[in-house]
């Protein structure tokens, strides 16, 4: 049998082998798998967070000076369900559960599976009342909210550092405040995962969650931004998500979400009694919200990356 005849008999294998040459590098690049790649293809860990960033961020390296923050002066009060009429919930699949099952039907939800703090302004999500998917800025432009609840952070565990996470979180809070100066912002702690999930040895574990929560706590200013720690109500004695509240170790069972709901209802903050304000969702009049010029974030990150690679190459050649 000649070579040609042999080759003709294996078209499938040949096609796979030939396509592999460009498919694998393409996939590596597309999906950002830079692990175990040569150094010039690797994203340096310090840049990883920035490389993926949606928003320009200032990395604030202010670690919590004391693990225990001074107790906030504000006192929480129990509120009725109509308190949530002008509430906006921003969150990932955990909040999706709240929205779909036991949440306050009167509130607005900007929640989607996989939503994370870096993409919160980028992602287009279907929101009740809109025909097509919309972004967060559109929602903030259209309505004025009295309260904004955020629970994000579980998806982000594999990305960035505690500092870069906090930095991005602050950036998001700042832009929320800029867009909705009247709103009270509630930052909810990242919920723990169950002992089983914790023991699985992935990047999703309680040590990482605690570490991020410790940073997250520092966003509380006692005036407009408040930190709500939900973990005490769902934890078991070991400080892990109690397995009776979850089936998959990460999400609350719907039947346990009543606790979450109850917690939020017992942690209301009443607005300053300056004016008798009905907590009704106010559609904004055509306020001129000055659109911030889109910063060329990606190219900036890319530039940094290219510079990093050049530096590396220089270093390598210098060594030789």
């Amino acid at each position: 049998m000649t070579w040609m005849e042999k080759i003709k008999k294996m078209p499938y294998l040949l096609l796979i082998l030939c396509s592999a040459v460009f498919m694998i590098p393409l996939f590596c690049f597309r999906t950002g798998v830079f692990v175990q790649m040569p150094f010039f293809l690797q994203t340096p860990p310090a840049l990883q967070a920035e490389f993926y960033c949606a928003q320009p961020q200032k990395i604030q390296s202010e670690a919590p000076a004391h693990p225990e923050q001074p107790e906030s002066v504000v006192s929480y009060v129990r509120v009725e369900e109509n308190y949530f009429d002008d509430a906006l919930f921003i969150g990932d699949s955990r909040t999706v559960g709240l929205r779909d099952y036991s949440g306050f039907q009167n509130a607005t939800y900007f929640a989607d599976t996989g939503l994370n703090i870096w993409e919160v302004y980028e992602k287009q999500i279907s929101v009740a009342g809109y025909d097509s998917k919309i972004g967060l800025d559109r929602l903030l432009k259209d309505y004025s909210y009295g309260k904004i609840y955020i629970m994000l952070g579980i998806n982000e565990l594999g990305r960035g550092t505690d500092q870069s996470f906090l930095g991005q979180y602050r950036t998001v809070i700042d832009s929320l405040r800029a867009a909705q100066p009247q709103a009270t912002i509630f930052v909810q702690s990242i919920l723990h995962v169950s002992a089983e999930k914790d023991a699985a040895g992935t990047y999703i574990n309680n040590a990482a969650i605690n570490s991020r929560n410790a940073y997250l706590k520092t966003v509380e200013d006692g005036k407009q931004v408040f930190y709500l720690d939900l973990n005490p109500i769902f934890d078991d004695v070991q400080g892990k998500l109690d397995s009776q509240y979850t089936n998959d170790g990460v999400h609350l069972k719907v039947s346990s979400q009543a606790l979450w709901r109850e917690f939020l209802q017992s942690h209301g903050i009443l607005a300053q009694p300056q004016e008798e304000e009905s907590a009704e969702l106010q559609p904004k009049e055509a306020v001129l919200v000055k659109e911030e010029a889109e910063e060329p974030v990606f190219s900036a990150a890319l530039e940094k990356r290219v510079r990093y690679v050049f530096d590396k190459i220089e270093q390598e050649t210098n060594k030789k």
Binding site: F27, C28, T31, G32, V33, G114, V250
Partner: peptide
């Protein structure tokens, strides 16, 4: 497989 297993950065599941 690329997106699901090897990439904690892009595969956001929760």
């Amino acid at each position: 497989l690329f997106t699901a297993q090897n990439n904690p950065f892009l595969y956001f599941r929760f």
